[in-house]
Design a protein around this nucleic acid. Structure first.
Lengths: 341, 341
DNA sequence: TTGTATGCGTTATCAT
DNA sequence: ATGATAACGCATACAA
């Protein structure tokens, strides 16, 4: 009885085909020109019979490349992330790279561990949706010329390709729209900004817009901390505040949007009767519920990031590029025009 | 100027520390007992200074294991999949495995290619959410004793661990609930069943339930084909049909639910005024919209599958196990009790 | 057109 | 307590 435990190696194929390992290797590298018909056929058969598949590990050890691309994301449960993943996966698959997916959970420590792990797996490149706090570990990667593409968020001091969005502009556009619709009392609800560049940019844009329009005193920024947050309290306070103007809530991403929508529902406030609602990200259900959103094409971001990386892996040594996808305002029922009082 | 391109190897560390590779290797394998304090310190410093990280490729080549676990899913955009991914990722990370994530897009060809790729990367184990049509390729994996855990769906003829749900029971429960609420004219809308065991089980359960209750003639199964489907036509026909009973639509997963909800909205039908709505899966937004669902804990499925795999990798050679998560009916506004007429 | 020998980074065996 | 050496599966420089 044949012992079929061990994976067949190139040596097994060579033996079965009655040729040398070198010849089999040539076959595998598509250097068929130097192989006789007869030999070619024999090798082909041996491979078939043994179900042989070259070991990427052994290959990589020689070639110093793994055909593995790491993608380290901050929150795998976020639909924004999922869409990115899908875009990146499509491109990588097309170029015969596989994706090593890691989830930092927005935790810098976990992120750091993962960067180490990815490095140990000898990834050819990294797509990084960062927590923002790990410049130092990334240095090692850069020294070894492992290309890194930043997704959405900046890492201070890292000059590499980045695929993102003009957050200030998108924030202005959304706020401008809200004001035009008649909302002057606006709350911006964001996840903790911490070291995350995009969140900070949006908050800053919010504040500077409000200052410009002399609306500082009717507008407010609220940062959600941890799981059991003070969100309901904040919302109640905001809603009960006496205001001369119509109220609107602007959420920083789809996860926050969900939390806010749920909390409002539980508190008994109606959208858009009691308050308007607008959000960054455009989860598929926003369409059903009818929520106005600032949509950034996450799928396209994933595609662009992966393509940038593949270009680097193909030898592109140009200056770091900054690619911005455009954001689109998806106008829906949650932000109706307010009748002037 | 130091040439810092090349990744430092164990040899570099040995040289810098003034010891042999073997000693460094001992240090790395936690065999510190056999190392003098002095040497230990020197090695530690050298590693720090060089930012050395052992190569998983080289290790794997010797040890015949990669610490890579493949997870091949059918639709990465489905929130059900995302939750599974998250569960699996948590467990794998805890056990120092990394996840190679592949998306077959419900395409058997793509699935087959991916199985090959994963094999070439020498994955230690595979979590498979299958299209159902690739028994033969999986054989090669099994021969090499690479453990496979099936997720949600069966592969004909493969006797391996499976983490799933009792689909017949869940379908019965949901239908029983609908009938109790007063709905006797029920449409089940499913994605193409093809070779996908769970979808077939659900359809069969639906049909057998309807036969039991003598409701064959007021109930119907509709299968969505491709993108540009005949869904709106079907819905219109179903809605316009003269029926003695209240109507309900039962969707086979969250993706279909979204399509149906959108189509109904566009056609101008109201839920639950014109028709009740219930669905398999429990996407987070079902809560907001108020849709009754049959929730299967996808996160837990991911966890269980990964744990099963880790157990196998740890040497568990017992008989294949079948693990079933329980489903829960999440009762919401989309299925109100019908006043008897 | 084909084969031999060497090395990739690591661990394991056997010495010392 | 430490080191020399072979081997893992493959690709490549060099021979034939």
């Amino acid at each position: 009885m044949r012992e079929s435990q061990r994976r067949p190696t190139i040596a097994d194929v060579a033996r079965k085909a009655g040729v040398s390992k070198t010849t089999v290797s040539r076959f595998l590298s598509d250097q068929a020109e130097y192989i006789s018909e007869e030999t070619y056929r024999k090798i082909e058969q041996a491979i078939q019979a043994l179900h042989y598949e070259p070991s990427q590990m052994a290959r990589g050890l020689k070639a110093k490349q793994s055909r593995l691309i790491g993608i380290l994301v901050a929150d795998i449960a976020n639909p924004f992330t999922t869409a990115i993943l899908r875009g990146a996966e499509d491109v990588c698959h097309r170029h015969h790279y596989s994706l090593l997916v890691c989830n930092s959970d927005n935790d810098p420590i976990k992120e750091q561990n993962y960067i180490r792990t990815l490095r140990s797996h000898h990834i050819d490149g990294l797509i990084l949706h960062t927590t923002g706090a790990n410049q130092s570990v990334l240095l090692a990667l850069q020294k070894e010329k492992t290309p890194v593409v930043l997704l959405d968020r900046e890492v201070a001091g890292m000059h590499v390709d980045l695929v993102g969005m003009d957050n200030a502009q998108a924030t202005y556009d959304a706020l401008n729209y809200l004001v035009c619709q008649g909302y002057n009392s606006i709350a911006y609800v964001t996840a903790p900004t911490a070291d995350i560049s995009t969140r900070m940019e949006r908050v800053q844009a919010f504040q500077s817009f409000m200052a410009d329009r002399k609306l500082q005193h009717t507008s407010i920024v609220f940062q959600i901390e941890g799981k059991a947050s003070a969100l309901p309290d904040f919302l109640t306070t905001f809603m009960e505040r006496e205001d001369a103007h119509a109220k609107a809530i602007f959420t920083g991403n789809a996860v926050i949007l969900l939390q806010v929508a749920l909390a409002m529902q539980q508190l008994g406030y109606r959208v858009p009767d009691d308050v308007a609602l607008i959000s960054f990200d455009d989860p598929d259900w926003a369409q059903i519920v009818g929520i106005t959103t600032v949509s950034q094409s996450a799928y396209e971001m994933g595609v662009l990031a992966a393509e940038r990386l593949v270009a680097r892996l193909g030898g592109d040594a140009g200056d770091p590029q900054r690619l911005y996808v455009t954001s689109t305002l998806q106008e829906r029922d949650s932000t109706p025009k307010v009748a002037k009082g």
